[in-house]
Amino acid sequence: MSENFNIDDVSNLASIELSEDEKAKLQKDLQIILEHVEALKNVDIKDEKIDIHPLSKVLELRKDESKESLKHEDAMMNSPETKDGHFVVPPSIE
């Protein structure tokens, strides 16, 4: 890894603004962890099948029936800003 790890790219993808101090500290810690996980490269993993569920459960599908949703007031009760029943955010187009 390491030489390719660009904290600015990653924090941008993760949508988290970081101060310069934070960047330095996190970069150092992440380096330690990424070096540790290098050990995995020594494991032979050819032909290994992947199951999402640790017990290999197969997905069960839900019958298409509508049920009661959240009351509008409950849906909006945590909204930082509300207008006419909408959630309001600063403009999402630049």
């Binding site: 839900r62 029936e65 509508s66 049920k67 949703s69 959240l70 509008h72 849906a75 909006m76 006419d84 029943g85 909408h86 959630f87």
Partner: peptide, 15 residues
């Protein structure tokens, strides 16, 4: 299980 609706009233079929 929220109903698929066509409505002008916002945020009434949400969970």
């Amino acid at each position: 299980s929220c109903e698929v609706i066509e409505s002008e009233e916002p945020n009434i079929s949400v969970c």
